[in-house]
């Protein structure tokens, strides 16, 4: 398979491995002990890095777009269509379509990952801002809040639960899609999966890496839920 890069260590080494490894057992704990440090842990750290960068940049771009789309409603539909367009391109295809421009680089991966966050982040930002009740806005205006004050003190806080809901989906999806990055660069938790697929479908490595990705996604999700509870205490009453 073309996705294995030169210089990769050959894991598992069936010749020297334990009986479990030689028989390609379901979950060889001795392999995990031996290769956590040289395989799984670095892949996990890379995976977190790839995801964090994509979410950070996606958040910044989506926020800027949402400010524009919310202020100038005419632009909302075109921005939404563009984000929708990017979202529809299959991830593996998007990676490959970027290669002629940016090569087999982290940049290629990040551009694609960021593209997938935009739709959900942008849509939720606009939806959250739009959902602020008319009477609340009227009370704010009648009270003498300026346009900016109304935005920062009323609309934004009230939109926060919806925005964070979008951030949760975007984060989990990004962690998930970052696995596919291994088609382009030898990084992330997709990497050990590819290697294992190439090595007679070595089950332990596939299961361990896959479970790590899922655990990472759920952990990130739980962190965001916690963050939302702290930031929006009013959503938990009555």
């Amino acid at each position: 398979m073309s996705v294995v890069f030169a210089g990769d260590p050959v894991i598992p080494n069936f010749g020297q491995g334990s009986a479990c490894e030689r028989n390609n057992g379901w979950f060889c704990t001795d392999w995990l002990h031996a290769h956590w440090g040289d395989t799984l842990q670095p892949a996990l750290v890379q995976h977190i890095e790839l995801s964090l960068i994509a979410i950070g940049i996606g958040l910044a771009i989506a926020s800027a777009l949402a400010l524009v789309g919310f202020r100038y409603r005419l632009l909302d539909a075109p921005i939404g269509v563009l984000a929708d367009f990017l979202y529809t391109i299959p991830s593996l295809a998007l990676f490959q379509l970027l290669v002629p421009f940016t090569g087999l680089t982290v940049t290629t991966v990040e551009i694609a990952l960021v593209s997938y966050t935009l739709l959900i982040l942008y849509r939720n930002m606009i939806a959250g801002l739009d959902a602020v009740p008319a009477d609340t806005l009227e009370a704010a205006r009648g009270t003498g809040l300026t346009r900016v004050q109304t935005f920062t003190r009323v609309e934004l806080p009230l939109a926060l639960p919806t925005i964070i809901a979008g951030l949760r989906i975007a984060t989990v999806s990004t962690v998930s899609i970052a696995t596919v990055a291994a088609f382009v660069i030898p990084q992330g938790l997709g990497r050990p999966i590819f290697i294992a697929l190439d090595q007679n479908i070595f089950k332990t490595e596939i299961l361990a890496s896959g479970l790590l990705v899922i655990a990472l996604a759920l952990f990130a999700d739980a962190l965001l839920v916690l963050g939302q509870r702290l930031l929006t205490p009013w959503t938990r009453v009555a």
Partner: peptide, 17 residues
Amino acid sequence: NVGRALPSLVLIAFGLT
């Protein structure tokens, strides 16, 4: 939630195993 957390590649690989 769980559905979104399941990476496609991981699912395919699990399916293979």
